[in-house]
Design a binder for these strands. Structure first.
Length: 465
RNA sequence: GGCUCGUUGGUCAAGAGGUUAAGACACCAGCCUCUCACGCUGGUAUCGCGGGUUCGAUUCCCGCACGAGUCACCA
């Protein structure tokens, strides 16, 4: 059997992590089984359609590396891949179903659907209604009793009583198919072998199977995925929503998570590699992914863990790559490579960068108490001494490099018989105005440059008495 | 409410009828160290409840509780 899977999002304007997870698992199943990954746009709900939404879908797939083999703008032998362009196909099939007696016209208004009895309408009357342009939908006729069952790769054997199934609408009154119908038709016509989607579709699956049966089509392999839940600020757990934090791919990226970290993290939402390895590139995921390791219980989206994963992906970047990312966050003239070196091990979300480095851009107004209030027995007098001696030493430095600066200040510490820590503390805080900085005293000085460093140290010196 | 699914430390999460019940995040302590972080070492803490089956269940079965999904001219 040829493995063909599909990712079928609706263009609603943003990429929820649940959708992205579906896309990822489809992609991984395709890659791990040597199959094709197909993109299909499900835009049958004209009201929900949002301009530019398709672009978001394409962009997200591109940024995450989820490359499609077939789809809109890509091509393939089973197009068109946009459902609104396939309207005739659905109508033809709906008519076929009516002919078989497995579907019927329904003329009820939306409000009276409950007591609707169009199933048993006189065929003549139906013809009359249609020729008189009365509004209608086409409904699927469900069996009234019995049990439908199917096997899901993740959830196992599922049985649902047929009286739970409603005569669902196949074609809406605007002539468009519902998801429930278009989905089945397209999956068959596009030769989809595995239907991989969120488990919110689990209880509707028997309806789809009935459709396959009416047409005499082979039922695909079902892989339903556990839900993704979110932890709300109050500690409760519900379906992941904005209450819990960012939920769309772009939001996550804007918060400072790398696309590859997002992919890595969401791959673990409902799946595990069967080993203790947690950091994976997409390539690696393709190699280890297996449907067998998908679990049934809902997964909870944990931002702390995501940040940890992100931290690792940041560390895996080269200084050059990270410097390149930094460009977006650094709006002043500086040596990005040097900045990258000191920032890389300290950043878990890119959004933290701004606050960490603002003192490089702007000369700080240093609170002199910051310098004193430390365990290194620093009083104002000693601090002043340290500063003036340091300035004297630093002014003589020609090669303004971390190692040279460190050496010079270290020997000053021996000369003055003061702990190195104390000297470094005074210098670092004076130069940055912060207790906590990325990088040590001399690393900070190196980035600031000689001139600026000395100005800053002198400024603080002048405050001391 | 009907139907369907789930429930392992504070959180995520492996796991098997008999285990010292992995690992990770977070937290705490120590080490490292020009601050913080990184890194390293160690630590605290878990099988929802009640019945059964069994020599033995956290693991299998049945109830219950709790959580979730679904019951749209949304997907």
């Amino acid at each position: 059997m040829e493995i063909r899977v599909r990712y079928a999002p609706s263009p609603t304007g943003y990429m929820h992590v649940g959708n992205l997870r579906s896309a990822l698992y489809n992609y991984l199943v395709a890659k791990s089984l040597g199959g094709k990954f197909i993109l299909r746009i499900e835009d049958t709900d004209q009201k929900r359609k949002v301009d530019g939404a398709e672009k978001i879908i394409f962009d997200t797939l591109e940024q995450t590396g989820l490359v499609c083999d077939e789809g809109p703008g890509i091509g393939g032998n089973f197009g068109p891949y946009v459902q609104s362009e396939r309207k005739e196909i659905y109508n033809k099939h709906a008519l076929e179903l009516i002919g078989k007696g497995d579907a019927y016209y329904c003329f009820c208004a939306k409000s009276e659907e409950n007591k609707c009895d169009c199933k048993n309408l006189d065929p003549k009357l139906v013809e009359n209604y249609i020729s008189s342009d009365k509004n209608y939908v086409i409904r699927q006729k469900m069996p009234e009793c019995g049990i439908s069952s199917f096997d899901d790769v993740v959830f196992g054997h599922i049985e649902i009583e047929n009286d739970q199934l409603e005569d669902q609408i196949l074609i809406k009154s605007d002539g468009m198919p519902t998801y429930n119908f278009a989905n089945v038709i397209d999956d068959h016509l596009m030769r989809i072998s595995h239907v991989i989607r969120g488990c919110e579709y689990l209880s509707a699956t028997p309806k789809y199977n009935l459709l396959y049966k009416s047409f005499g089509w082979e039922i695909p392999i079902y892989v339903h995925l556990p839900l993704i839940m979110g932890k709300n600020p109050d500690g409760s757990v519900t379906k992941l929503s904005k209450r819990a934090g960012a939920v769309s791919f772009v939001d996550l990226v804007n918060e400072g998570y790398l696309p590859e970290a997002i992919i890595n993290y969401i791959s673990f939402l409902g799946w595990n590699p069967g080993s203790t390895q947690e950091i994976f590139s997409l390539d690696e995921l393709e190699k280890v992914f297996s449907i067998d390791n998908i679990r049934k219980s809902p997964a909870i989206f944990d931002y702390e863990k995501l940040a940890w994963v992100n931290e690792h992906h940041i560390k895996m970047k080269s200084d050059e790559e990270f410097a390149d990312i930094l460009r977006k966050y650094v709006d002043f003239e500086t040596n990005l490579i040097k900045l990258a070196k000191i920032l890389k091990p300290r950043v878990s979300k890119l959004s933290q960068i701004e606050n960490m480095i603002d003192f490089f851009r702007q000369r700080p107004d240093v609170d002199k108490n910051l310098i004193m209030n430390k365990k290194n027995k620093l009083d104002e007098k000693i601090a002043k001494e340290i500063l003036s001696n340091s300035i004297e030493v630093l002014e003589k430095v020609d090669r303004w490099e971390n190692s040279v600066l460190f050496e010079n200040l270290s020997s000053l510490s021996t000369q003055m018989n003061i702990k190195k820590n104390a000297i470094m503390w005074v210098i670092r805080v004076s130069a940055s105005g912060k207790e906590v900085t990325p990088g040590g005293a001399t690393e900070v000085l190196e980035i600031l440059g000689k001139e600026e460093s000395i100005i800053r140290l002198k400024n603080v010196l002048n405050k001391l008495v």
